[in-house]
């Protein structure tokens, strides 16, 4: 997949992806999120650190994520998890994006008129 078009498509959906991943797992840290996305998409989609951390910080500022720091392998690691509001918001945003993608798919699969 083309990286630049990939990243522009990612922009709008990154926060939803983060919320979805955190819905699935109790808590995750930054690097883990990037790797999980890479694994799930077989390397087709990569999240850069420059996009990931501002998105995480924004979600935290909006009260959707909460953080805790633990010492792992001799260094501090910041884990993100969903707040109560985050859980509710995640469900809503995921449903919204899914509906949008469904509609987009209908348009993309438009058969040429005879």
């Amino acid at each position: 997949m083309n990286t630049s078009s990939n990243s522009s498509l990612l922009k709008g959906s990154l926060s939803v992806m983060i919320l979805r991943l955190l819905e699935d797992r109790e808590k995750m840290y930054g690097y883990e999120i990037t790797q999980k996305v890479k694994d799930l998409t077989a390397g087709e989609m990569t999240i850069t650190e420059g996009a990931l951390y501002p998105a995480l910080h924004k979600l935290e500022a909006d009260g959707l994520l909460t953080t805790e720091t633990q010492i792992v392998d001799g260094r501090a690691r910041k884990y993100y998890s969903l707040t109560k509001t985050g859980h509710t918001e995640a469900a809503g945003r995921i449903a919204e994006l899914a509906a949008f993608l469904e509609n987009l798919n209908l348009v993309l699969k438009l058969k040429p008129s005879l």
């Binding site: 840290y29 930054g30 690097y31 650190e49 951390y53 260094r75 501090a76 690691r77 910041k78």
Partner: peptide
């Protein structure tokens, strides 16, 4: 805070 996060990422990579 930024250092903590980036150091962990840098170290993990």
């Amino acid at each position: 805070e930024v250092m903590t996060e980036l150091l962990d990422h840098y170290a993990s990579l």
